[in-house]
Amino acid sequence: MIQHRNQLTSNAGFIYQPIGNLIDPGLTRREMEIMSYISFPDKIIAALLNISIRTVINHSVSIRRKTGCLSKGELIRYAANKQIIN
Rank of each mutant, 00 (worst) to 15 (best):
M1Q: 12
M1S: 08
I2R: 13
I2Y: 07
H4F: 13
H4D: 13
Q7Y: 12
L8C: 07
S10D: 01
N11A: 10
A12T: 10
Q17R: 12
P18L: 00
P18R: 15
I19D: 02
I19M: 08
L22P: 07
G26T: 07
L27C: 03
L27I: 06
R29K: 08
R30M: 10
E31V: 02
E31N: 01
M32Q: 08
M35C: 14
M35D: 00
S36Y: 02
Y37M: 10
I38R: 09
S39Y: 05
F40L: 13
K43N: 10
K43Y: 09
K43I: 12
I45N: 08
A46T: 09
L48M: 14
N50K: 12
I51Q: 05
I51E: 07
S52W: 12
S52N: 09
I53G: 03
I53W: 11
R54Q: 12
T55I: 01
T55C: 08
T55E: 12
I57G: 01
I57H: 13
N58W: 08
N58V: 00
S60Q: 13
S60C: 08
S60H: 02
S60N: 11
S60G: 15
V61M: 10
V61T: 09
I63G: 04
I63Y: 03
R65D: 13
T67F: 08
G68V: 01
G68W: 05
C69G: 05
C69D: 06
K72M: 04
G73T: 04
E74N: 04
E74F: 01
I76D: 05
I76Q: 05
Y78D: 02
A80Q: 09
N81W: 01
Q83V: 01
Q83W: 02
I85L: 03
N86I: 15
